[in-house]
Amino acid sequence: MVIGFLALLLCQLAGELLVVWLELPVPGAVVGMLILLSLLAIRGEAPASVRQAGEGLLSILPLFLVPAGVGLMLHFQLIAANWWSILLALLGSTLITMLVVGVLMKCSALNPGEQGETHER
């Protein structure tokens, strides 16, 4: 468990370092995710400790979003001044995105009858 958590932190640290060295505009943790994905692919399995630490974190991920979300209180004026624009953008864009992806799915190989192995969650 501790080793698994250490592995996650090391991947993130490596990601952050790459972002600084290569001046990438991407969040370091996303690069860390790609590093972990490559390591898992090379190893051919997810070690139990990494799975335990990772799935533990993912199961309470919403909790970690709260501190940043509370920061909304700093933006009441921005929201009040732009609520119409924000509402329109969110409603319109969400509908357009779902229709576009839905149509692509409809035309793609993801057709009825496609069966995959069941997910482990």
Binding site: L34, G54, G116
Partner: peptide, 29 residues
């Protein structure tokens, strides 16, 4: 708590890895 988001993002690699076969089969779509 905010800090824990970083390692949690890294951990998203695990479900992605678990779905690798499906992704490979349906890579293009």
């Amino acid at each position: 708590l905010h800090f824990m988001m970083g390692p949690a993002i890294v951990a998203l690699a695990i479900p992605l890895y678990d779905n690798r076969q499906r992704v490979r089969r349906l890579l293009l779509p």
